[in-house]
Amino acid sequence: MIEINNLNKKFGKLTVLENLDLKIKDGGVFAILGPNGSGKTTLIKCLLGMVIPNMGEISFDSKSILNNWEYRNNLNYLPQIANFPNNLTVSELIKMVKNLRPKDSDEAPLIKRFNLEPFLNKKLVSLSGGTKQKVNILLTFMFDSDLLILDEPTTGLDPISLISLKDLLREEQQKGKTILITTHIMSFVEEMADEIIFLLDGNIYFKGTNEELKKQTGIDNLEKSIAELISKQYV
């Protein structure tokens, strides 16, 4: 369970998050949506400890995460851009990440699922963007953690891999994992998300299921209801 109280973050004069409160219960896929600059990435990075808030409290499983790092052992993160040390091979990278985390991993089925065997002994610098993203996904899913945070997971994936990713997400969902996803692909949200968290101007503007959102806006299309949410704000 994630609990965020009165979270504030400024970058210089620019306020990105303002008095944000949020509770996320265990289990389910949560899509974090919002227009550009609404604070999605900042929120996620606060959770990860990569951005240090000016004010507020974040706790994960009832323990504060600020100035703490052990909690990250129960969290997997898929960054938006994957850039790895150029001169390591894929298998060396896997070994390294395994080495850095004290828990057990299960990478073999994932390698198979994403057809990565031919690349295992290639240097990372020689991989294409899509293959890098697959390696990125592999590194995220090979550990068994309660919380998964995915930042634009679909970037650069071919349709087959995209299906594999969706399957993978469903499996994790069924295991009762908490999964946070940011994305701009609405069809992906519609298909996968149990709940939508909509951020606007540094605060939560809407939190609820897909149906609740449609009901609130009165539009039977996710993409359009989101657009409606944004436009209302600026009228």
Binding site: W69, Y71, R72, A82, P85
Partner: peptide
């Protein structure tokens, strides 16, 4: 050059 990789490391329990 390693900025993104550093970010990946930051999300690890280190």
């Amino acid at each position: 050059n390693t900025k993104e990789f550093t970010e990946l490391l930051l999300a690890q329990p280190i």
